[in-house]
Every structure is written in structure tokens, then in C-alpha cells.
Design a protein around this nucleic acid. Structure first.
Lengths: 150, 150
DNA sequence: TATTGTTATACTCTATAACTATA
DNA sequence: TATAGTTATAGAGTATAACAATA
């Protein structure tokens, strides 16, 4: 006997278990680049602004769904690695804009392979069709529409 | 233009983003019970041994896919909350077995609602059919067969 | 007074390494 | 010598609260 809420709890549990594995795998693939998974997400987010005005700290926090304080630490790390630059906004001197550096762009290219390898490793058991179905379901589950990769 | 590896990277990303949300939601639902999500997982795992011999620390670590040291802290917390008991194994005095207490069983019952609510909250956008498909895919993705809930 | 980002602090989760007590 | 669990330590990720600078 199993009810619908049994299934739902199990689903949530499997989701978390799977993601713990994915996180471990990503970390392992990214370690040689000196970038943590959270820094990688932030770096890619910054790259999405290329061509527009660079994002503010607050923009990044909102898009990552974390508090601004969390972004400070991530940017500290990326700035120390030379991947981004803090640039004060002349129009509003409270605002700091985060610019991608050439090093950052190079790191992103190397990161792409690491992320691909990690994704392949976790998704290996699924066929291309199944991956598409999974993508559709995950899309339906997120409030916001999917972010563009690369 | 998007390649298969684009899709895969995006999928991994969505998975992690979704799970960060789920983790936040679970935490919020469990906070009133004084139990963290990781403690909740351990507590449920211990309950799966009811009727058999209680699990050793090493068993729990293996099943949770973490190092034994991580289990020590979780059991510390659950023991302080009165949910489990450390019982030395008389047959092998290096071994410690983790027994569920009545308080632990009561907490599990209350936890069940919290976990259901959290799961419903995150799965709300999906129909029952979609949830079933998702469950199948997640099952295919895990090496080990799905753990029993409850 | 409200906004932006920071310093200060803390907690969860997990890891590695070295140690203790058994076996 | 190998095993089971611990103490000690560290680091990633995230949070809240108080604060400085600016608007």
C-alpha cells in the first residue's frame, strides 16, 4: 500500500540524494580549476550580462536566490582568482558592478568541459529521449524559465 | 543552436537549483521540530531497521553515502534531542548500535507531515502522471534501488 | 529615511587526518 | 595489523544582524 504523498516524499528524497551525488561529482571535476561549484554558477551568471551593463551585487544575489552577503564571499573568491573585477558605478556610488576579466572568460571555457563531464557522469543511465523528458519536467518545476547556458 | 552537451549541462544546473529550493523548503518545514534535514534522513534510515538488529554507525554512513565522521555529528544531535540511543554491541565492543527511542518514533510521525508538505510545495506544478514519470527517471538515475519511505 | 554592500558571526553539512579502543 | 568510532580541524555554502557610505 502506498499513497500519493508516500510517492511525493520519496521523490523529494531521491532528488536530494541525486543532487548530493551531482554536487560531489561537480566539485571533483572543478577542483583542478580552483573554482567551487557556487563560484562557477556566479561566474556563468556574470557572463550572461556580457554585452549589457555589468550586474550589481544585488542583481547577482537575486538571480542566485541567495542573500547579498553570500555573493560577497563568492565574488571575493573569484576576484582573488582574477576571474572578475569589482567596479564602482560612477552614477551611484553605493553600487558595485561585477565585470568579467579575460582570465574569467578563459576559466569559463575550461569550466565548460568540467561541467559537461560532470553532467555526463550523472546522466549516463538515461537515453537522450529520457534526458529531454527530464528537462521538460525540471523546467515545469522551476518558477523562472530556464537560464541560458553558455 | 544547442548541442546535446548544452542540454546536459543545463539539466544538471536545473537539478541543483531545484534542490537548493527543496532544501530551503524542507528546512523551513522541519525547523519547528528541531530537526535538520540531514538528521531527518538519518532518523528515517534508523527506523528502516526496526524489527531487525539496530544499525551500526558504519552501516548508516554507508547507506547515507557519507564518511563515518559525518554520522557522529548527526547522531550527537539526534541523541541530544532524545530521538536515538547509542548502544554498545556486547558481541564486539568496538561497535555502537543506534536504537530508535519512543521520542524518535514520535518525531518521525511529526516529521512525516513536514516532509509531505515540503514535497507538495515543490512538486505542486506537476500532475500525478508527471510525478510518476519523474520518479521513474530519478530511479533510473540512482545506482541503488529506491529506499522505502515511511 | 531607504538602499547597497560590507564586517562580524554562526550554523549545517561534509571532508581528511590522527588517535583510542578494541579485535 | 585491521576495524569502529571518535577528537581535532577545515572548508563550502548560506543565514541574520549591525554598520558605513551614499542617496
Amino acid at each position: 500500500m502506498s499513497s500519493a504523498s508516500d510517492t511525493d516524499r520519496l521523490l523529494a528524497e531521491q532528488l536530494l540524494r541525486l543532487t548530493r551525488r551531482l554536487h560531489r561529482i561537480q566539485k571533483r571535476h572543478m577542483e583542478p580549476l580552483g573554482i567551487t561549484p557556487a563560484q562557477s554558477r556566479l561566474l556563468r551568471l556574470v557572463s550572461h550580462y556580457e554585452g549589457e551593463q555589468p550586474p550589481r551585487m544585488a542583481d547577482l544575489a537575486a538571480r542566485l536566490e541567495v542573500v547579498p552577503r553570500a555573493v560577497t564571499t563568492l565574488v571575493d573568491g573569484l576576484e582573488a582568482a582574477g576571474c572578475v573585477r569589482r567596479v564602482p558605478d560612477p552614477a551611484n556610488r553605493r553600487v558595485i558592478r561585477i565585470e568579467l576579466t579575460d582570465t574569467g572568460r578563459a576559466t569559463l571555457r575550461r569550466l565548460r568541459n568540467a561541467r559537461t563531464d560532470a553532467a555526463e557522469e550523472i546522466l549516463a543511465p538515461l537515453t537522450a529521449d529520457q534526458r529531454e523528458v527530464l528537462g521538460g519536467l525540471l523546467n515545469a518545476l522551476s518558477d523562472a524559465p530556464a537560464e541560458r547556458t553558455c
